[in-house]
Design a protein around this nucleic acid. Structure first.
Length: 424
RNA sequence: GGAGGUUUGGCAGAGUUGGUCGAUUGCACCGGUCUUGAAAACCGGCGUACCGCAAGGUACCGGGGGUUCGAAUCCCUCAGCCUCCGCCA
């Protein structure tokens, strides 16, 4: 959530930045500023009334101690009106505050200067490309056929036991999942990320802290009896570790990572997008998170991008990096790089990672601050990235590394999965 | 799930017959004096947020609500932690 201070001091800059998302926020922002002014005026008045009332109460206390009951009663009479006034003002202030919050959470983050204006994925900017589509391209079998041929993944069984989008992984398919998770975690460990195994369900406060609530409520599975949400990404529990936390400047950057399954309802998806492993309701992912000093966060973002590049190169997959345009960026992000790998059989790019800097947007909701050099509390910047999400990686591995009678496991991965080929 | 206890500032720990308590004290931390330097000792500072140009004011003693002129202190409610019982991988 954008800070009020930012809206107050940089209204025009914020509006200009939001046009990159093709949002005209002028009326919302001005409403917010009006409500803010209203709230402040009300608070000033309320504070005065409370001060008066406190002073009288203190007098009564003093008189009671001295046994001057009559005088105390006389002053008590004076407080009657103040009480009503207090209630009235309190209500007005709470109402203004509530309206203000409601509007404030509707505003997405302001894109950083480097982000291009744009409406859709077509306007994203390719900033890097590595590798060539494999020779098999054109005749390559799609991963769902390969998965079936070698009995790696059973989609039908998943549909029977749970529902569409919840596959079973079997045999070498399961080992490949386990190996990839280990590979990603070991690489993160080597890069200095502390590993966590977080809860897979979170409370509403956490959903709010990272920005899934209130706007993406429908994308998470919700357990009504206990009012808990299944995590759509490890970002939620890992970042919420820092909710209501004040760090020391020396704690920054804080680097952490974790493997979790991720659960997404994906309401409204259909067609070729959901075929095979392209889009699932449950999938595995290793997430990296950093809590950074505001001055360093973009260098941190670059470092995280480099980390993900290393992973894809280890897997020998052709990939490209896009800097998302304003219209394609997530609600909470100030800048996002998407990683896409080439799918040889589908002959299209598949998104496998998204690395973002949220600047203070999440920190403001989380109330995660650090003590700066002057001893003042300031918001940190939060960042995260998939490193990596498994299903489309598996799809690309199967499709791109297939040969005449099987699939070759990339060298870097062999020690983790325990075999060199998938074949009959 | 049942019964009881508990929840105070970074930590420890006072304060519960309601009244200068936003809160005693110790430790930790920061600054200073002393010292060649350090330690010790002494002096001073040391929660957060909001309003205000400032002086200053307001709110917060797990969360929310209530009683009262006035609540950390009383009541209700929710949550966390601890102990015992039940159930259980």
């Amino acid at each position: 959530m954008l800070t009020l201070q930012c809206l107050r001091e940089e209204r025009d800059r914020v509006l200009a930045a939001l046009t990159k998302r093709h949002i005209d926020a002028a009326s919302t922002v001005d409403q917010i500023l009006d409500l803010d002014a209203q709230r402040r005026a009300t608070q000033t008045e309320l504070d005065q009334v409370l001060a008066e009332s406190n002073a009288l109460s203190r007098q009564i206390g003093g008189l009671m101690r001295e046994g001057k009951k009559d005088e105390a009663e006389a002053i008590k009479a004076q407080t009657a009106g103040l009480k009503d006034k207090t209630h009235e003002l309190k209500e007005a202030m709470d109402a203004a505050e509530a309206q203000l919050q409601e509007l404030l959470v509707q505003l997405p983050n302001t894109p950083c200067d480097l982000v291009a204006s744009g409406k859709s994925a077509d306007d994203n900017v390719e900033v890097f490309r590595s590798g060539e589509p494999p020779a098999a391209g054109g005749h390559a079998k799609p991963h769902w056929d390969i998965a079936k041929e070698f009995d790696l993944i059973d989609f039908d069984l998943g549909a029977k036991v749970t529902g569409a989008g919840f596959p079973f992984y079997k045999g070498k398919g399961a080992k490949l999942q386990r190996g990839l998770i280990r590979f990603f975690l070991e690489r993160a460990d080597e890069a200095g990320y502390t590993e966590y195994i977080p809860p897979h369900v979170v409370n509403a406060d956490s959903g709010y802290g990272t920005g899934q609530l209130p706007d993406k409520e429908g994308q998470m599975y919700h357990m009504q009896d206990d009012d808990l949400y299944m995590i759509p990404t490890a970002e939620v529990p890992l970042t919420n570790i820092f909710r209501d936390v004040v760090l020391n400047a020396s704690d920054l950057p804080t680097k952490l990572c974790g493997y979790t399954p991720c659960f997404r309802r994906e309401a409204g998806s259909y067609g070729k997008d959901v075929r095979g492993l392209n889009r699932l309701h449950q999938f595995d992912k290793v997430e990296i998170v950093q809590i950074a000093h505001p001055d360093e966060s973009y260098a941190t973002l670059d470092a995280m991008v480099e980390h993900v590049k290393g992973l894809l190169e280890g897997l020998e997959l052709p990939y490209r990096i896009l800097r998302l345009c304003g219209g394609d960026m997530g609600f909470t992000s100030a800048m996002t790089y998407d990683f896409e790998v080439w799918s040889a059989a589908q002959e299209r790019w598949l998104e496998v990672s998204s690395v973002s800097n949220f600047e203070t947007f999440q920190a403001n909701r989380l109330k995660c601050r650090f003590k700066d050099e002057d001893g003042k509390n300031k918001f940190v910047h939060t960042l995260n990235g998939s490193a990596l999400a498994l299903p489309r990686i598996v799809a690309a591995l199967l499709e791109n590394h297939q040969d005449h009678d099987g699939v070759v496991i990339p060298k870097a991965l062999v020690p983790y999965v325990g075999f060199e080929r998938i074949d009959a």
